[in-house]
Design a protein around this nucleic acid. Structure first.
Lengths: 215, 215
DNA sequence: AAGAGGTTGAACTCATGGGTTCAAACTAGT
DNA sequence: ACTAGTTTGAACCCATGAGTTCAACCTCTT
């Protein structure tokens, strides 16, 4: 028997190649032969691991969505220990989130989801439900803590999270030409700063509304 | 000769049917025969008016994008004469914009653009450039007037417009499951109110920051 | 009535690509 | 070296659908 490690590697390679090609071509235009080439594997091997083009697609999307979500959740980390300068922490987290959102993989995944949602209604479950929704929940948890600590105004934490994410992501779409154009890091930073600024004006605690210059 | 009116009607019917079918199936999965059926027309007639499936797609998208943009620009109208209650006007415009954004046609168009942007890079020109960008510009013009009139804080009008749109549209995507689920009008209204509230807190003139109950 | 231009349906050509088959080659474990 | 499970390439079958052709057919114009 071929080493189990080798099998798993092949499977991973196939899923990775599948996502790459699907991202490049869309579901219908992507042909299995090309996926096999991308993965450095023969066509029958693909069908040996994944029965269908459709299940191949589902698994590739699911893997990509999981990794994207993990990255985003990790980016919220600094908010659990906000330190003394809340603005700086928000800018940092915002910058990180915005960078992830503008990432190639992330954009490709979003495009694929939008495109094939009608043909694969079931991908909603693990891609939308556990995508932006989970992120929003996690962020709302942090917002609740900040409100309790008196560092934000007393409001609905869910709405605070929703609006912070909106301020980050909203300006991104038009500027990136729907994920086509890459955005420079300085521009991303500016977007994050602007979002943090507006957010603090609207949700900051009354006594700390003004920009605090330094410690 | 068949009446010119009849020809034009056929062409319109074809473009409309094309958009409907493309929206339902995506570019690759849509077959020209089905478009012909949808338009109540024979297949060769389609090729008589539009040479290609590709140009058929381009024209259908262009027409849809134009009509969507027109609707959105019209929705900004109330902001040119803001009346005494700025908050109410913002909520009204916001509600209108959000309703348009959540509309079936609009969602379908957005999905198509995302999906086929890689295969038709040229649709960027008339769909993205003259889509959200134009809307943002028009809104920024209104913002500039409001700032000059002292009804908003002195800031960059472009950023004010960007953030207002972000606050409107951002919360929509996750809730509508990327345009799959229809959202009730009361929920849309709530989203618009929340957006107006956050926006006024961040961009309202200092003296008019608080909620003004009535005239 | 005659003719011109657009429309129709059906049949046709041809390329693409999903999925399968199979014999040969490979790669451990014994 | 022997065997079992895997991979490989190439060829194959078959469905789908883009785009074309053509003869019959409207539907106006003159």
């Amino acid at each position: 028997m071929v080493s189990a490690r080798g099998r798993i590697d092949k499977r991973q390679a196939i899923l990775d190649g599948a996502f790459t090609v699907f991202a490049r071509q869309g579901y219908a235009q992507a042909c299995v032969q090309e996926i096999a080439n991308e993965a450095g594997v023969a066509k029958p091997t693909v069908y040996n691991h994944l029965t269908d083009k459709a299940t191949l697609f589902r698994h590739a999307i699911q893997a990509a969505a999981q990794s994207v979500l993990d990255q985003r959740l990790a980016a919220l980390q600094p908010l659990t220990e906000p330190g003394t300068d809340l603005r700086a922490t928000l800018e940092e987290v915002g910058h990180h989130l915005v960078r992830l959102h503008a990432d190639d993989r992330s954009c490709a995944l979003r495009r694929l989801l939008y495109a094939e949602l009608t043909h694969f209604p079931d991908i909603l479950d693990f891609a939308v439900e556990s995508g932006p929704h989970r992120l929003s929940q996690a962020l709302a948890d942090r917002m609740a803590r900040l409100i309790l600590a008196g560092r934000l105004r007393a409001t609905d934490p869910d709405q605070a999270a929703e609006h912070f994410l909106a301020l980050l992501v909203g300006p991104l779409e038009p500027r990136s030409h729907m994920g086509t154009r890459q955005i420079g890091d300085t521009e991303l930073r500016k977007i994050a700063c602007a979002a943090a600024d507006t957010f603090l004006r609207a949700f900051g605690a009354e006594n700390a509304n003004a920009r605090q210059p330094a410690e």
